[in-house]
Design a protein around this nucleic acid. Sequence first.
DNA 1: ATGCGGACCTGTTAGC
DNA 2: TGCTAACAGGTCCGCA
Length: 271
Amino acid sequence: MPELPEVETTRAGIAPHILNREVESVVVRQSRLRWPVPAELKAKLTGCVIQAVQRRGKYLLLTTGRGTVIIHLGMSGSLRILGEAEAPQKHDHLDIVFKGSSLLRYTDPRRFGCVLWTQGDPREHRLLSSLGPEPLSDELDTKYLFTKSRRRAVPIKSFVMDSKIVVGVGNIYANEALYRAGIHPLQPAGKVSRLRYEKLTAAIKDVLTEAIAQGGTTLRDFVGGDGKPGYFAQKLDVYGRGGQPCNHCCGILKEVRLAQRATVYCARCQR
DNA sequence: ATGCGGACCTGTTAGC
DNA sequence: TGCTAACAGGTCCGCA
């Protein structure tokens, strides 16, 4: 479910409620997520104060004086703040309960996400250590993408979705960014010109920035940390619009399957 | 090093 | 109306 804007929306939504709060207890109802919730999490985290709520790619990092909680929402995960414990539903796998009885609840029907604990620098954790730059940072620029793409035969859509190249560009925004940049998603990454990488770089930054401003893209029942849905879905040009007319040329948008992911584009506007 | 396909899960929707 | 199959926002891992 969540792409970077959703994760950022979640981060911003939960941060004010948990910053500088002390963990009173941790309740794990289902430890079998993508990776098991570590048995030591409860003992390590209890008594800690949340000192920072950060994001790296689509990973959320809750920093304490003793270590860091690493959370990924996978395809269907979400986090909510509750004022007090409510009866947990079927997929409410974990609660971090704070002094004063408010809590952070992790929900994830498909269990593709994870909740992990690491000591030391989380950036050196195996899941984070080889991630590419943040798309909204200056590290992601035309030169970087162009250089990295040389001699790469993979379709450019797969290339920009590769977290080793750049983090946070998931299926929805890859489709949207390529459309805005006028680049055909199946184009081999290494064959795309520098000028077109310039357009793509700008498109990635624009689409993500706009989506964050809108509170993410609501699909099905995603809600941010404050429980409010995002509104970006209405602004999508191609994702979920296969067979419908292109917003620029009115040609029919094509939909194909690339690496098992829905890929939508306009054959006239994207070359 | 690169690229590909499978794997992890459940819920919803499309199609017969 | 009911059953089944396909598909869904991610991404890691192992193999060629």
